[in-house]
């Protein structure tokens, strides 16, 4: 007997609720107002513009620190999501109780370097991370941030992270 694939709605609901749990428990992500959109396993971070993110009120331009934080948040969540994905898909991750999913600890940043390519406009910003190396202990991540045009990055970053210990 061939096992029938799960209904698409159930799969989507499971993935979205795990993502929501992962992002929702970090107060600083909420402070920045950052949210994540998911297409399959690919994540796009969105930082809607708000006044508190301004660094230079005369231009106005986004604060370099807000930009750095946005890209770092994107890197950490993307790394963690990549880690969780397999366990979530295989059913190893217990998610019967949506409010109490046993998520792994978050990766820790070793270093993070931001390249400010142009000043951040008072508009929504988007970012995507590419995990260039995901080892058991260390990971390297590259992040791109853009605003109106996908091809005109306003910032890019690379960082190194210590991955949390896994039980298995």
């Amino acid at each position: 007997m061939i096992k029938r694939p799960e209904p698409v709605q159930i799969v989507k609901q499971r993935r979205d609720s795990v993502l929501r749990a992962l992002v929702g428990r970090v107060p600083y992500i909420n402070f920045l107002g950052v949210t994540f959109e998911r297409r399959g396993d690919e994540l796009t971070a969105i930082m809607p513009f708000k006044d508190e993110l301004i660094g230079n009120p005369l231009l106005p331009a986004l604060h370099g620190g807000a930009t750095a934080a946005f890209l770092e948040v994107t890197a950490i969540i993307s790394l963690s999501w990549g880690m969780i994905w397999e366990d979530m898909e295989s059913g190893a991750l217990e998610i019967d109780d949506i409010d109490n999913i046993a998520l792994p600890r978050l990766p820790k940043t070793i270093d993070f370097t931001v390249d400010y390519l142009r000043s951040g406009l008072p508009r929504d910003a988007y970012a995507r991370a590419r995990i260039t190396r995901a080892g058991r202990r260390y990971a390297s991540v590259y992040v791109e941030g853009w605003q109106d045009n996908r091809d005109r990055l306003f910032a890019q970053a690379t960082g190194h992270f210590v991955m949390p210990k896994r039980s298995s």
Binding site: R25, V26, P27, Y28, N30, F31, L32, H63, G64, G65, A66, A68, A69, F70, E72, V73, I76, R105, L106, T109, F112, V114
Partner: peptide, 18 residues
């Protein structure tokens, strides 16, 4: 508001960057 690790209450690196 600036906690990055909910398990320990440690502030997020992004806030330190700012």
């Amino acid at each position: 508001d600036i906690i990055g690790d909910p398990d320990t209450g440690v502030v997020h690196g992004g806030a330190v960057s700012a």
